[in-house]
Write a protein that binds this DNA or RNA. Structure first.
Lengths: 205, 205, 205, 205
DNA sequence: ATATAATCGAGACGGTACGTCAGGTCTTACC
DNA sequence: GGTAAGACCTGACGTACCGTCTCGATTATAT
């Protein structure tokens, strides 16, 4: 989360509760104010913490928001629904549900925007959010291969490329639908989208 | 661009040159500073214009950036490359090229993020950017139907839904690839993406 | 009032009504807003006149206010009340009454303050206000000499010096009482003041 | 000077040096620019202090200038020159010398003008400047009574009224001579003025 | 009649200062 | 050494007026 010097044994230890309180306060402020009107002073007040404490743990607003938003995506799961199509539909719907929550909408896009000019921030996002959820694609593919829905992938480089493509297509489409087009990614839309995606993957294999 | 009352015949008319200078200065500042460090005072200075002139024409930073970025996408074209796949690959590459320019990267995601909390802004984005480029999808489909690559669409509601889906998938995937994954949407990626998209559309029809 | 080139015979003549309307609007604004919050744009609006018209006739706020306030003091009179003491008391009370009006209070002190750094403005004040009311002192002395209350002044330079001193003492005391001490220059105070002034002049002659 | 809550024991204490630096910078700016062109931003810069620090301590330009000017008058003294007349002449000359300094000229009249529309400001002026120097009149009278030049005052209300009158006459005359008539209150003028004042007080007693 | 010319209203223009706010740092006293 | 509190410097905000300018439209005198 943030750099912590484990060697420091002296002095008062950092409050562990403060971390959680600050991240929760950040999400609360994102809901009420959105990214651009969120202020670190306000977050500190909400968390019952001094501004100094906050700055000792995070470098700035961007890093704080990334951490606060990243936690939201950890609740994504991939229960076995019996078929690849059903599995995908399920996780896409979960993803859409998270993006429908204001703390995710406001925060995620903003830090992505900031990351266009800050490589360290982009890397932090990739590691904390994107990479961490890549597991879902891998897990879904493995399960589909076990079911025989997908052939085993002989070339690992090609496999990685396909995973990336799928991830960009899934995440990109849902985000665009939700945040740009401004329409809900509801069951009907998810079903159409999944049909096209799977059909394309099958035909292009 | 901004509302202009054509009825007001009296008083000194607004300088037409100022509009262009301001939008150009905005893009220049986006390149050098990015959205979050862009200040309206700086834009005004670059444009050789007083801050008040800028505020007289745009409500704030968001509206200004939307207009400045929107102009970038007007250069998109759909030359006839002989097949639907080639047409799509061409326009997607153009789109990726625009998104690779820093003034687009910085500005676009930021205003989308802001739009999550501002319906008027989202509508402005939809009208100025999204809707305006929807023409490409329509034009491409018409051309493909004339070629016989796509069947004529009997149900207009279903047709509109498909256009929306395609747009979300194309725009979303390219944006996610470029801005989130942080990798170039190069020819190889575009070819893979187009193959999946077209294959999916064909199989799901 | 303001410079007018009598040689210009051609072109549309300046509206005579505008001058009066502007000065009246200025006094009205002084009453409601005071000097520091009075704006020329607002005065123009109140007078039903364009800002340009106002600037064509006055160089700025200070000059305008001097002219607007100067008119107030023209109503001072020196009716013959039978004795020098009564004459002085009468005119001092009139002066105090004018200074009690908000348009005079606000405007007069402000332009005097401005004049401390603007010689042209000080001269304008001296000519438009101070000098113009000096007549009262001269008239009062002449009348008192005719009555035999004051001896004829043999030395004109000494006479001028005395007139100046009286003027400074009268105007200064009333202004200080009204605007600094913040108490009314009522009949009782005026009687005490006049007694001291006349007694001093008599004993020092 | 400004309200200070002595109860607040926590947090970083206010810099004591800043107060003095700001008031000195204010007087410096008054000398160079005069009241109307003095800006708080400029004062802050001169004082080597942030604008916010200035606003944290003073409500606005008027309050700041009152405090800055008030300090000037604290140097007034009433050395024993042997007679009431000489004492008065001495202090009036000192007063005139202060009023001849540009920081006093510019500032004093301006805040008096502002005070015509702001009761709190008038009270601040009365307490910080007028009342504080009233000591001179009291001290001078006591000394004169000890010398036998003035009879003891039996009625305290009448005594207070006389002190007020003297103060209005002295301060008013000097201010009017200096700032309105625009002539120096030199020794000759002061001698004439004192002769009239004392003569009047003696004859009206 | 028709120039010619200055005025008028309206309102945009380049500036400057306003007073506020947030970011991020520093200085206290306390724990 | 961590912590709460809050003062501090910096720099941008969006607004208000300043005094100037540029319009089209009047309203006079001088042809």
């Amino acid at each position: 989360m943030q750099s912590r010097t484990p060697a420091s044994r002296t002095g008062r230890p950092r409050s562990a509760a403060a971390d959680a309180a600050i991240l929760a306060a950040t999400r609360e402020a994102l809901v009420e104010l959105g990214w651009s009107k969120l202020t670190l002073g306000d977050v500190a007040t909400r968390a019952g913490v001094a501004k100094t404490t906050l700055y000792r743990r995070w470098a700035g607003k961007n890093e704080l928001v990334v951490d606060a938003v990243a936690e939201l995506f950890d609740e994504l799961e991939l229960p076995d629904r019996g078929s690849l199509a059903a599995d995908i539909e399920g996780v896409v719907l979960q993803f859409a549900a998270i993006l429908a929550r204001p703390e995710a909408r406001s925060g995620l896009m903003a830090v992505v925007a900031e990351a266009t000019r800050d490589d360290a921030l982009r890397e932090r996002i990739r590691r904390s959010i994107v990479q961490r959820q890549m597991r879902l694609v891998l897990q879904g593919r493995a399960r589909a291969q076990k079911r025989g829905e997908l052939p085993p992938e002989p070339d690992p480089r090609e496999a990685a490329r396909t995973v990336d493509l799928i991830f960009d297509m899934v995440a990109g489409a849902v985000v665009h639908r939700t945040l740009v087009s401004g329409k809900a990614a509801d069951e009907e839309w998810v079903r159409s989208f999944t049909r096209v995606l799977l059909g394309g993957l099958a035909s292009s294999a």
